[in-house]
Amino acid sequence: MNVLEVKNLRKSFEDNIVLNDLSLTVPDHTATVLIGASGSGKSTLLRCINLLDTIDDGSIYLDGKEISDPEINVDEVRKGLGMVFQSFNLFPHMSVLDNITLSPIRVHKVSKAQARDEAMTLLRRFDLADKADQYPDRLSGGQQQRVAIIRSIAVKPRLLLLDEVTSALDPVLVNEVLSIVRDLKADGMAMVLATHEMGFATQVADEVCFLKDGNIIERGPASQVISAPQEAETKDFLRRVHEAGRL
C-alpha cells in the first residue's frame, strides 16, 4: 500500500519552473529522502504535498485518494499530514505543551486531559518533559525543532513531511533532532524528508531521490544513490557536498 503517490507534478512561480513532471511513490512505513542543491525543488514538493502551494499540473494521492482535487477539504487532508519546517515555526505565545496540544484539542477534538497526557508521554520519550511549561524562546534551536517534530506527530499523521529540519541548527544540535527522526522511522512512520545530511540520509532512507531542476535525476537505495551514484549530475552534487565537509 502506498501512502503517497505523486504523478507528473508541475509547479512554477511565474517564469521559474520549480517542479517539472515529477513523480514519486512512498510505500507505507518507509522513508523517502530528497537530496539536491538549494532551489532544486525539494521544499516546493513538500509544500505542494501539504497543499500549502497549489500545483500547476499532475496529481497527488494520499492513501489512494486524490488530494489535488480543488473540491477537497484541505483541513481534512492536513489532518493526515504532519509537516516540520526548517525554521521550526513554533507558536511563540504558547507554552511547549500548548503548542503540542493545540491541534489535537481544536482539530481532532481530543479531550484536554487526554491531549495533555499524550503530549507528556511524547515529551518524556524525547527527554523534553521538563520543558513542557516553557515558552519556545527559552529553548535551544535543537529543543525547539524537537518540540516542532513532536507537535507534528501528536496528531498521529499518516505521513510526516520534514523540510530540512536541521539546516538552521549547529552541528551539535543536529544530532539530537536526527535521533528523533530515527526513532520515528523505527516506529514505522512513513515520511518524506528533504535534507543536506548525507550520513543521516544513508541511515534512514528506504529510497533516496536526487532532485535537480525540478525533477528526480536518480533514485534508489542509499547504498546506490549516495554511495555509488550512476548519473554524472548526482556525482557532481555529492562531490560538492563532500568538499563542503557534509558527507
Partner: peptide, 21 residues
C-alpha cells in the same frame, strides 16, 4: 506567513488559525 503555514499544516482551519495563532 510561516506562523499561518505551521498552523494550517497542523489542520487548523483559517478561522482557527486566526483565533488561536
Amino acid at each position: 506567513p510561516s506562523q499561518r503555514a505551521a498552523a494550517r499544516s497542523l489542520g487548523l482551519s483559517s478561522s482557527q488559525t486566526m483565533r488561536h495563532v
